[in-house]
Amino acid sequence: MEHQNISSEITYQHHIEDTEFKKRIRKTTILLSVITMIELAIGLTIYTMHKGEHPSALLVLMFKGMVCILTLAKAYYIVSVFMHLGDEIRNMIMTVVVPLMLFVWFIAAFLWDGNAFRTSRNRYDKFKMEKTMQHPIKQGDTTQHGFGG
């Protein structure tokens, strides 16, 4: 084969057929466009629901969840086809994908706490007066002169 050895680290080179490649790119482009259209349609559905009298919170949430899943699908196609990660050796895919799992706990913990901020903000009573009083010291208390007496 005529292609030259690019680097000593590389053992062999992929060769992708031209026609097959073009077909795959066309397919992915159409797929990404279609998913984006569906996302936009869902976005507009949520918009009309919000304009309505009593938007069902559950339904809105479900639609939003669907958009999230569709976005992940889009991300999968971009990374795997456009960035050619899907064509790499499995172990390399793992070294990129596995660390991204960290996002699960990253997102979960942060949003969980964000939600807790709201709860405490809503429960916060601006007019509450906090008072502290010295506990009456009884005879025989050994702790009055500091910790441990």
Partner: peptide, 23 residues
């Protein structure tokens, strides 16, 4: 050199080359 190397079982992690076949 070429694609035939992929067919034979290469031990990617033995050193002297990239385990992921990328520079």
């Amino acid at each position: 050199m070429a694609t035939t190397a992929a067919a034979t079982k290469t031990n990617w992690w033995n050193g002297g080359k990239s385990p992921f076949n990328v520079e």
